[in-house]
Design a protein around this nucleic acid. Structure first.
Lengths: 340, 340
DNA sequence: TTGAAAGCGCTAACAT
DNA sequence: ATGTTAGCGCTTTCAA
């Protein structure tokens, strides 16, 4: 492949056969080629064959940039997510991608790193592509982000959370209810000295809301958290492991720990294994999300399964169907596991 | 937010203020607005202020579709990857995303599900957006994919593998060398009855190449694999766990197992834990990739760390610098861990 | 069934 | 320093 023929300045006309050239080669008008290619309007079988032949002979690749501009109807969907390495978001992407691709939509994405200001500038950049929909995580955004999105004629989907007002469509679960459910389960199993170990609840507002629900449920039962520890930065197995060691050092009498998510909880399980702490006999562990790794543990993790794939599919469906604005709570499922 | 104002048919002029309107509002020409917005060419400070004021007052969002068409220079980068839920790919995406965004590029992506035919049709769809670069995984593609990519004036980056001819740029490691290194390490540690447990080596050609290297190295040492098992479908912790149980049932005398990757190896470690198999005393385990989860195990996993983040960064750098066609082998690092 | 022509909203000469 | 104008490659009336 001759390097010299390539260039970052891609897409210059040199690099592409145009529809006009195809029309000329096939001996028909441009609009006829356009109709044939989009299978829209009417044309004779003979005309179609000549167009197809010319398209293949010339290796024509339609220019969607031009097509989108001309039709003023974009088939781009913008996804602005906190992280690509967190499986929670990629599960959702996965569910969203299939239906969208089938209908000829393309996904454009950008990563905010859990930073609302970054989200704001990325949303602005995305809107410049005139997407049919913008998909975000959570309901917390800067005022400017909400204003931009509100002013635009595109659909807006906020994922993973239903605790609060939505801009347009919201699909997810109630994280406060999830936190309450976890606390309720542990109380129901007889645990009384329950602690919390989590990652940054301000950057990850959904984790923060679970913590609120967890605290509220325990308080109402007259058993407020016996210890709480919040680690800076993102969640990870390693942090869960080290974190639990530190939490227990300060509060050795805990009989159960509610983690901000499964990654942290798996790390906690590793710590118990290493430190010889019997689970759930001496310490019960409870996670959140229902990841595969938790289920694959020799002792399946007690957790709450969130329907991430379904969130993605429903998001795609509502956008494609042009459904009315709504908040859709998909609920969660409690997985008793063997660690609590 | 009134639902009725939204529509999937987004981006129709109703939804957007145009540059012409900004120009009129500011009392200047269109090209002046364009210059100010792109900080290109010359204009007075006073003019700039009036333009900025009009932009903000009208809530103008530039239309990049139109801008790209007019300048015939796209700032879109297409990523066509096998999976979004496999952390190996998202680590690379992560490394690539930052530098690209900084320079005003946007990432468009699509998921092939390890299917070359799907990759072919997705590449075709991507080329319609006239991307500045197309990023793929691996060196194995259909003939049609290679032809399309070769005919286009955009850069092509093939990631994660350097064992074979590249279309334009290739950045990764030699997977055959990785397989050899794993085998060599196990032999060097004195293991003699070495088995293999992996996921589909035909869909995941990189895993297949590691298996080839592994086999070759053992054969050359006069110690061919004592047992091999290949599972259908994608790799996962659960498959590694069940797979190892079955592999050992058929070959109880193994003293080491080389896994297709860390997910599988972690699953194997779980099996050993549950079955009371001493690691590495009775059975040594070796993975591939150097994932965090392996390092967080109570016994750190013996593995090979692949520079996934660097692959992404280098890919972005070479594309942005418009570097000559080349194959860049970033090498790997052996992590002895504690399981082998 | 088909073609001609007028844009879509911007950029990039080219004038001034 | 700024405005005018001709496209970019396609879709979409509107006639024929």
């Amino acid at each position: 492949m001759a390097r010299d023929q390539r260039s970052t300045e891609a897409g210059r006309s040199g690099g592409g056969v145009t529809l006009a050239e195809v029309a000329a080669a096939a001996g028909v008008g441009e609009s006829t080629v356009s109709r044939v290619l989009r299978r829209h309007g009417s044309y004779s079988g003979r005309t179609r064959d000549r167009v197809i032949e010319a398209v293949e002979r010339l290796g024509y690749v339609p220019n969607r940039i031009a097509g989108t501009l001309a039709s003023t109807a974009s088939r781009l969907v913008a996804m602005v997510i906190p992280s690509v390495t967190n499986i929670v978001f990629t599960d959702v992407l996965n569910g969203i991608g299939g239906p969208l691709e089938e209908r000829g939509y393309q996904a454009v994405f950008a990563v905010t790193d859990y930073d609302p200001r970054r989200e704001e500038s990325l949303v602005a950049a995305m809107l410049a592509w005139r997407p049919a929909a913008v998909i975000l995580a959570g309901l917390e955004h800067t005022e400017a982000t909400r204003r931009m999105l509100g002013a635009q004629a595109c659909r807006v989907v906020e994922l993973l959370d239903t605790d609060g007002p939505a801009i347009d469509l919201a699909i997810g679960i109630s994280n406060r209810a999830a936190g309450r459910a976890g606390a309720g389960y542990l109380l129901g199993r007889g645990y009384r000295r329950i602690g919390y170990l989590g990652h940054d609840p301000f950057r990850d507002r959904r984790a923060g809301k679970r913590l609120e629900g967890f605290r509220a449920a325990l308080a109402e039962a007259g058993r407020p958290p016996a210890a709480e520890m919040v680690l800076e930065g993102a969640s990870s197995v390693a942090r869960g492991r080290e974190g639990l060691a530190r939490l227990l050092a300060g509060a050795p009498g805990l009989d159960a720990v509610y983690f901000s998510n499964d990654d942290m909880a798996v790390g906690g399980w590793f710590h118990c294994l290493e430190a010889g702490i019997a689970v759930p006999g001496r310490l019960a562990l409870f996670g959140h999300n229902g990841l595969d790794i938790g289920a694959a543990l020799p002792q399946p993790l007690a957790t709450l399964r969130t329907p991430r794939d379904a969130m993605g599919r429903e998001a795609a469906r509502l956008v494609l169907e042009d459904a009315p604005a709504q908040v859709l709570d998909l609920g969660f499922e409690l997985i008793p596991g063997a660690t609590a």
